[in-house]
């Protein structure tokens, strides 16, 4: 059975990757996961400098999902290069660095530093608030999304995946914009902005008031968006949003994704990626599919 897939010239031994921010850089997962078995590790978002993130509470439970307002806490790209890349390089997997920034310049600063780093791919998180445009996310305006992609692409040495925000009316428009900006691939979806209120206290549950919704509750929305984007652009797609089982992952691939990321499922069960990979292989076996690429985009 062949599980290997290719994204922008980077070969993944199988389509299973980790969604940014739900796997750290893998250290916490080492007891439960054979990191060598992962197609790629997509690490938590990295910025040009240390970001402290938001105050607690940062987590709220919702039906079939969760809200988070971590606020991209990270130690900055220098610390990341010093500590996390050498750790991950011990394993036979691809390293994808998720990039956070509040301005195009900040994105570019991180990407420039990573030129000399031993990493395989970059993933641009355009769901970050653009401070120069009143804090509106880059990813909800096609012009800003295209501009950020183009500028980052100019300084990037590694292939660039652009991670799309689902908090838009027409995600296809944004996907096309980043394609014109020169993206090598797209990943979707990031979290859906949501909220919870503590009725007794008459206050939001999250200190940040609003946060990103993830987990199985978002899967139908994510799948629909992957399906629409995969049909509309000529780029490989990494599909994610609520994947809990091998069959969920297969659905994303049938909708047009070349690879998938497992997010919230890692938090609920640190061994989730291994189980999902086993379940995908079992599905192929049962259905006499010899090459996983044969199911990519089969749904009309």
């Amino acid at each position: 059975m062949r599980m290997e897939v290719e994204i922008a010239g980077v070969r993944l031994k199988n389509p299973v990757t980790t969604a940014s921010g739900t796997f750290g850089s893998g250290r916490e997962y080492e007891p439960y996961v054979d990191i060598n078995r992962l197609g790629a590790v997509i690490v938590k978002g990295v910025a040009n400098k240390e970001w402290l993130g938001n105050p607690a509470p940062r987590i709220a439970e919702t039906y079939g999902g969760m809200l988070n307002s971590v606020g991209l806490q990270n130690p900055g790209v220098d610390a990341f290069m010093l500590e996390d890349i050498p750790f991950l390089r011990r394993f036979d997997t691809k390293i994808v660095v998720n990039i956070a920034g509040r301005t195009v310049e900040e994105y570019c600063e991180v990407v420039e530093k990573l030129r000399d780093a031993d990493v395989d791919m970059l993933e641009l998180n355009i769901s970050c608030p653009n401070v120069k445009e009143g804090g509106v996310a880059f990813g909800i305006d096609p012009k800003m999304a295209e501009l950020a992609t183009r500028e980052v692409k100019k300084v990037a040495r590694q292939p660039l995946v652009v991670k799309l925000s689902p908090n838009v009316t027409d995600i296809v428009e944004i996907a096309k914009a980043v394609e014109s900006g020169g993206a090598d691939a797209v990943s979707l979806i990031n979290t859906l902005i949501g909220m919870r209120i503590d009725a007794r206290k008459r206050k939001p549950v999250l200190a940040n008031k609003i946060g990103g919704l993830s987990g199985p509750a978002v899967k139908p929305v994510a799948l629909r968006m992957v399906y629409q984007v995969a049909k509309a652009v000529d780029l490989p797609v990494i599909g994610l949003g609520g994947i809990m089982t091998g069959e969920d992952a297969i659905e994303f691939m049938m909708a047009g994704a070349t690879a998938v990321s497992v997010g919230t499922a890692n938090l609920l069960d640190p061994g989730a990626t291994m189980r999902i990979l086993d379940e995908m292989e079992a599905f192929l076996q049962e259905n006499n599919i010899r090459d996983i690429r044969d199911i990519i985009g089969v749904v009309e």
Partner: peptide, 28 residues
């Protein structure tokens, strides 16, 4: 106590503040 997304260090959801090393400010 803090609200937890995972309980084993995976999500950075459960932070508290500690005095920053070397004095000024805090770290999570």
């Amino acid at each position: 106590e803090e609200r937890m997304g995972c309980g084993f260090g995976g999500c950075v959801g459960c932070v508290c503040k500690v005095r920053a090393e070397g004095g000024e400010g805090f770290a999570y």
